[in-house]
């Protein structure tokens, strides 16, 4: 038997720490951290960009509308989104799916590279009787499961109805990626955090529309404000037949679709 220091076998082994020295070190470390925090409070915050200071998020509620009958599947939206938001290769904040149904009602669905570079003329198998494109993005659900599962409060819904991820706070656990029934989230390999469509929050709250809406050459994508009675989106929602993806999940998607087929999930 070796002699036992402090009457405890293995205590402080490796670092050679006794309880007393450990507590001493802890005090030093806390003091250093505390002084760091004080310095952090004194230093001024970083300069903000050109932000519209008059924007009041309690007076807006954004909703999105996609007309699948207008979409031509050119992929402009997906390319604009990547350029606007630095979306890494292989990930998509928005993408386009092509649906083709034959006479038997069997669906052939494809989305090569998210439809970012358009679609090629390839056989769907069988006689195509019905075919269309469906652009997809985060549905910014009013009852979203993704923010509920976040263990650290890094994902949240803004008062104007946009679901966002705080990448400074996100720990990259991926719970939200699994919680989203629409596959709208991914882990960004560059930041190692959850990433998703923000409805271009930096544009929307500063007087612009999202990059995908602005770039669409056929007006298949619209974003509008439910709180503004003059916004044309309210007339469309009030008078036309609209639908959401997977309403049975009760997530209350805020992306509406017109001309949606029941085959689309």
């Amino acid at each position: 038997m070796q002699d036992k220091k402090n009457g405890c076998d293995g205590c402080g082994d490796g670092l050679g720490l006794t309880r007393r020295t450990f507590l001493k070190h802890l005090t030093t470390v806390s003091a250093v951290v505390a002084s760091g925090a004080v310095i952090g409070l004194i230093l001024p915050e970083g300069a903000a960009g050109a932000v519209d200071s008059t924007y009041d998020w309690t007076r807006h509620r954004w909703v999105y509308l996609i007309d699948t009958r207008a979409c031509i599947g050119c992929g402009s939206c997906a390319r604009a989104c990547r350029a606007e938001n630095d979306v890494p290769e292989g990930n998509y904040r928005t993408w386009i799916e092509r649906y083709r149904m034959n006479a038997e009602g069997e669906a052939h669905v494809d989305s090569p590279q998210g439809g970012e570079f358009g679609f090629e003329r390839i056989k769907a198998g069988g006689d195509v009787r019905k075919a269309f494109f469906v652009p997809k993005l985060c549905n910014h659900c009013a009852a979203t499961p993704c923010t509920q599962v976040c263990p650290v409060g890094a994902s949240y819904t803004t008062r104007d109805g946009v679901v966002l991820v705080d990448k400074e706070h996100c720990i990259g656990c991926g719970y939200c990626v699994q919680a989203c029934p629409y596959g709208s989230r991914f882990i960004n390999e560059e930041t190692h955090t959850a990433d998703k469509c923000t409805w271009c929050y930096h544009r929307l709250t500063n007087g612009r529309k999202t990059a995908c809406v602005d770039i669409c050459p056929v007006g298949a994508r619209i974003i509008g404000d439910r709180e503004n009675p003059d916004d044309p989106i309210n007339e469309i929602i009030a008078t036309q037949r609209i639908h959401v993806l997977q309403p049975e999940l009760l997530t209350k998607p805020q992306c509406y679709y017109s001309g949606l087929d029941m085959e689309v999930r």
Partner: peptide
């Protein structure tokens, strides 16, 4: 504003607009 970092709103809004 809620159970999240309030400063993130301003950070999100200050991102560069490219289009």
């Amino acid at each position: 504003f809620g159970w999240y970092r309030g400063d993130n709103i301003a950070e999100q809004r200050a991102k560069e607009q490219r289009h």
